Amino acid sequence: MAPARDRRTGFSRRRQYSAFFGYVLAVAGAVVGAALLAASIFNPPAFSTARMAVASVTAPVASLLDSGTDAIASVPQAIGTWINVHGENAALRAELKRHDALLSKARVIAYDNRRLRGLLRVRDRTPEPVLTARLVASTASSGRRFALLNAGRVQGVTPGMPVLGPEGLVGRVLESGPIAARVLLITDPESLVPVRRTRDGLPAIAAGRGDGRVDIRSVGAANVRFAPGDMFVSSGIGGLYAPGVPVARVERAGSDSVVATPYAPPDAVDFVIVERPFMPMPPPLPPRAGPAVSPAAPAR
């Protein structure tokens, strides 16, 4: 026969002891509570002394537990702070490295300018501006790249004049009418501009691609390496464009021929400056007179 589930405490000595001590603790707690309540009512100084004695015992334990809790809670914050500081430090180092590279390029360019001016004693010629006009239209869908200038021969605009924007070279005048002119942009496939690299003077050609960008092609050298951000300006070779006019900046690294972005894209240029050619062609020589022929003597 299975034993009954509902047993009394007398069947288990452990349960008897547990029940007994439970009753004892409950009665003791009630007695102590009643005594403390009576002391707080009838003898507040004694109750205050007992309360401070208990507080003196529990305060160190509470302080230790509170310190441990704060230490554990500060661990995630410390880890997050370390990660943030590490990332900010890396970003600052990268920015400092970029600034150092720009400063080095500027110093190299300034040194080259001083050296060339001192050795060659050459003074830059600044062409005289003809006028300031507006680009009123430009091709955007065809493979050719032209722009329309709202000035023509009446204002002194003639074919071959360079056209400059605020940031750099735009192109040259291809045709001119009485009050309008057609500009061949540097991004046109038929446009070729002699350029040089600013950091070392490397000669190259900026050839239009027909898609709003130009190709930078090396001249007279093989396996020439181009780096992203290389700046190219007009070299003055050919006598049309003045030297030192910004033309394009290299987009990606490459060799011999790379794609570059013009400094003055036509869709972002409003007003332009039309200049005279840097070194205009000399006027044609007058025809040479032939040897004088004396008239024949009359026959006698």
Rank of each mutant, 00 (worst) to 15 (best):
G152T: 12
T187C: 03
D124C: 02
T58S: 12
L185I: 13
A59D: 11
L25G: 11
L202H: 13
F20E: 00
D230C: 05
P228F: 06
R225D: 10
P284Y: 01
V219T: 06
R134E: 09
T49Y: 02
A204C: 00
S257C: 05
R121P: 00
R172I: 03
T132Q: 00
V173L: 01
V24I: 15
V233R: 06
L65V: 04
A101E: 04
I41T: 14
L120P: 00
E251W: 07
V170I: 15
I273E: 01
F47Y: 06
A90S: 14
L25M: 15
L119D: 02
R114V: 06
T198M: 13
S257Y: 01
A204G: 01
L119K: 05
I273F: 02
T187V: 03
V157A: 13
N43S: 10
D211Y: 15
T69D: 09
A206G: 08
F232M: 03
G168Y: 11
R153G: 12
G201A: 11
P60N: 11
S235C: 13
L192V: 14
R249H: 04
L37A: 15
P76G: 03
G201M: 13
A94G: 06
P129H: 06
I273V: 09
S67Y: 09
I109W: 06
A147L: 12
A253C: 01
A181G: 10
A91W: 00
M161Y: 08
P280R: 12
A137Q: 14
A50W: 06
D6K: 14
R172L: 14
R209M: 12
S12T: 14
T9D: 15
R199Y: 10
P194E: 05
D211N: 15
P298A: 12
R98V: 10
Y23C: 15
F278H: 09
R93K: 11
T58K: 05
A94Y: 02
L36H: 03
R15N: 07
A297H: 13
R153K: 13
D188T: 12
T81C: 04
A110S: 10
V54R: 01
S234I: 02
K105W: 09
T126D: 04
E128W: 00
M279S: 08
A296R: 14
V219I: 08
S255E: 07
R300T: 03
I205V: 15
D200I: 03
I41Q: 13
R217S: 12
Y241I: 11
P295E: 13
A4F: 04
G210M: 12
V214K: 12
S104D: 05
S255P: 01
M281S: 09
G244T: 04
N89P: 03
T261C: 04
R182M: 15
A94H: 11
D112H: 12
